[in-house]
């Protein structure tokens, strides 16, 4: 037990140091840092404007009220912010494979997948998380919650967001790992980016059963932001919570295996 705790503390320290080094690197361009932060604010305003325009014509969107729809957008923005802030959608992995410089990261005495993941993060994107929290607060204020119910739902919501993070992270790792074979992975990244961006809409808009099956079972977009928002609004749903947890675990294990399989095909160009 002590050993595991020590390992976690070590990983946490390395992550903090990496984050610090990334902040230093980004602060070499302070203008960009602040513009990115302002850009995140703009993104929030545009998201609100988009939802406002849609709701100026309708009262609910596939059963979601205005504030509930805002909650889905906020949940998506939270996940997106965490993904950029912690691992920059694994940008560093593709970059290192393409430039043949991955060796430098692989020889470090730490789990390769973890180090490759956190090697590059975009600290300015933590602003996205802050703006998402503001949007989340606006959405929550418009919804009617009793105090005790809200705390339990919020706890479950946060738990499901962690699952969402792992699902998105795992899909990203698989897509990025394809670069081990193709070297050029930008195209696939574009598809992934589009798919993740689509999870800012409630997946209930897919009223055809085939479309709903594709976007929940095959591509689990529903579990990214719609399901966490649903649990926060309606309370616990054991089936959904278990499904989300199961998917997160399966996706994570599968992506880890795929990454290590891809590593075997890595041919360095630097040494």
């Amino acid at each position: 037990m002590k050993l595991i705790a020590a390992k976690i503390i070590r990983i946490y320290r390395i992550w903090l140091m990496q984050l610090y080094s990334n902040i230093m690197r980004r602060m070499a361009y302070p203008g960009n840092f602040y513009l990115m932060a302002i850009g995140s604010l703009f993104q929030m305003f545009l998201s609100i404007a988009f939802v406002n325009i849609i709701f100026s014509f309708i009262n609910n969107l596939a059963g979601w009220s205005y504030h509930q729809a805002l909650l889905v957008v906020a949940s998506y923005m939270l996940i997106e912010g965490f993904m950029w802030g912690t691992c920059a959608y694994l940008n560093g992995l593709s970059k290192n494979i393409q430039e043949g410089t991955l060796d430098g990261l692989l020889v470090k005495p730490i789990d390769s997948q973890f180090f490759v993941s956190v090697w590059q993060s975009d600290p300015e994107d933590w602003m996205r998380v802050i703006t998402a929290i503001v949007l989340f607060t606006i959405a929550i204020k418009g919804l009617d919650f009793s105090q005790d119910k809200f705390i339990l739902n919020l706890f479950l919501y946060l738990f499901l967001l962690i699952n969402s993070y792992f699902i998105i992270y795992s899909i990203t790792l698989v897509i990025r790992s394809i670069t081990f074979w193709t070297t050029e992975g930008d195209g696939l990244w574009k598809i992934l980016e589009t798919l993740t961006r689509l999870s800012q809409y409630p997946t209930d808009i897919f009223y055809h059963s085939i479309a709903r099956f594709i976007f929940t079972a095959i591509l689990p977009l529903a579990f990214i932001s719609t399901v966490p928002a649903k649990i926060l609004i309606n309370g616990p749903d054991i089936k959904l919570i278990l499904a989300s947890t199961f998917l997160a675990i399966i996706f994570f294990i599968a992506s880890r295996k795929f990454f290590h399989y891809g590593l075997k095909h890595y041919s360095s160009a630097s040494s």
């Binding site: 969107l61 596939a62 050029e184 195209g187 574009k190 598809i191 209930d204 808009i205």
Partner: peptide, 29 residues
């Protein structure tokens, strides 16, 4: 490769947008 990937990505985004508006019209909006 990148060209076709862009095509697929935009195609997917179009499917979702169409669904979004179908859903709005579906409710009589």
């Amino acid at each position: 490769v990148n060209f076709f990937a862009s095509f697929i990505a935009e195609g997917l985004s179009l499917v979702i947008i169409v669904y979004l508006w179908l859903s709005i019209y579906h409710q009589g909006g």
